[in-house]
Amino acid sequence: MKPIVARQTAVTAAVPDAGPTAAELDAIDREMPLILAEVELLDAQITTLDRVPNELDTRRIRRARNRVLAARRELTNRTAGTVGGAA
């Protein structure tokens, strides 16, 4: 049995794993409040998967949704302010 290998050189050069750039890290830092709010919402939703949500669960999910919306609004306003236009 003959091994099948490519006879041509690769079209694109392999980029070594250098990690995120400074700009990518800054973008992650700007989005971190939204990321944390979404994680909190997901956590609240996961707790109610195997049972009927009670009043406290409903409040927790509602508050987490409101935090996500507020974080999105804040991020959008900040982004629109730096770009110079409306989002």
Rank of each mutant, 00 (worst) to 15 (best):
R67L: 14
A23Y: 00
P53S: 08
L69G: 07
I4W: 09
Q45I: 10
T58G: 05
T47N: 14
A64N: 04
V11K: 09
D43I: 07
N66M: 14
R78A: 15
A70S: 15
M32K: 15
L25R: 14
A87D: 03
D26S: 07
A23N: 04
P3G: 03
T58D: 05
R63F: 10
A13G: 12
A10R: 13
N54M: 05
T58C: 00
I46E: 15
D50G: 08
N54H: 09
Q45K: 15
T12M: 14
G81L: 10
I61R: 02
R65L: 01
A27M: 04
R78P: 00
A18N: 11
E74M: 09
L69H: 12
V11Y: 05
Q8D: 11
I61K: 02
V83C: 01
T76I: 11
L41P: 03
K2Y: 06
I4T: 13
G84L: 04
A86L: 00
V5A: 14
R62A: 13
T21I: 03
A37M: 05
A80F: 05
P53T: 08
P3Y: 09
R78Q: 13
R73L: 14
E24L: 05
A71M: 09
R63K: 07
A87V: 01
P16N: 04
A13C: 02
V68C: 12
M1E: 08
A86V: 00
T82V: 10
R59C: 00
G81K: 04
Q45W: 01
G85V: 09
T76A: 14
A70L: 13
K2A: 12
P16R: 03
E40A: 15
E31R: 14
G81Q: 06
R67C: 07
E24T: 03
R65A: 01
R72D: 13
D17N: 14
Q45E: 15
A22Y: 00
D29T: 13
A87G: 08
G85E: 03
I28M: 11
P3V: 12
T79S: 13
E74V: 03
D50S: 13
L56Q: 12
A37C: 03
R59E: 09
A71R: 02
R60Y: 01
